[in-house]
């Protein structure tokens, strides 16, 4: 299929509608408040930032990074998306209610803190795990990684909740009041 053929199949006003759901939908704002450049940049940056945030999360125990910084980078990815596409663009990716995300993050963290009590170790202790995998080699990690995962989810949930209430909520209020967002 050549580029020319594909262009014919797509109606003119939908040329920029992405085929993947998690890309910006492009149908969010009135045309005059839309910044095309930012939208396109976000399409590239959004997945890159999410992957980078996971990298930060995983290397956090021995190198700069960790659940908090990872969560913040992921949160910023969502902020970027919100700025480019508004609240509509946000809803396309995240269907989970943000309080649930936030709560489960904290729950994972607290449970990680509580778990050592079951084996008679002080709360919040961590253990070193090491597994020998074929091809990959030795994979090692600390159980405190789970705590970091919890923090990561907590931060992402908090940022999403912020965008929902202070971002989308205010936009909605202003629209209700008849003002242009």
């Amino acid at each position: 299929m050549t580029a020319g053929q594909r262009d014919e199949q797509v109606p003119f006003d939908e040329w920029d509608v992405p085929r993947q759901g998690w890309w910006l939908s492009g149908e969010c704002r009135d045309s005059y408040s839309r910044t095309l450049l930012l939208e396109i940049a976000t399409r590239t940056l959004f997945p890159t930032m999410l992957v980078f945030s996971l990298y930060l999360l995983l290397v956090g125990h021995y190198s700069p990074g960790g659940g908090f910084s990872g969560g913040l980078v992921a949160g910023l990815a969502f902020v970027l998306r919100y700025m480019a596409g508004g609240a509509v663009g946000l809803g396309a990716v995240v269907t989970l209610r943000s309080p649930v995300l936030l709560g489960s993050g904290l729950m994972i963290a607290v449970l990680t803190g509580l778990a050592p009590l079951l084996v008679g170790a002080p709360a919040l202790s961590s253990a070193y795990l090491s597994v020998e995998l074929p091809l990959v080699g030795t994979v090692s990690s600390q159980t405190s990684l789970l705590l970091d995962v919890g923090v990561y989810l907590l931060i992402v949930g908090a940022v999403l909740d912020l965008l929902r209430s202070l971002g989308g909520g205010i936009e909605r209020d202003m629209q209700d009041a008849g003002e242009r967002p």
Binding site: P99, V100, L102, G103, S104, L106, M107, V110, L111, G113, L114, A123
Partner: peptide
């Protein structure tokens, strides 16, 4: 830790 855990359960099961 127990009230913290309880808080998370009440958030998730809100």
């Amino acid at each position: 830790l127990l009230p913290l855990l309880g808080a998370t359960v009440t958030v998730v099961g809100s």
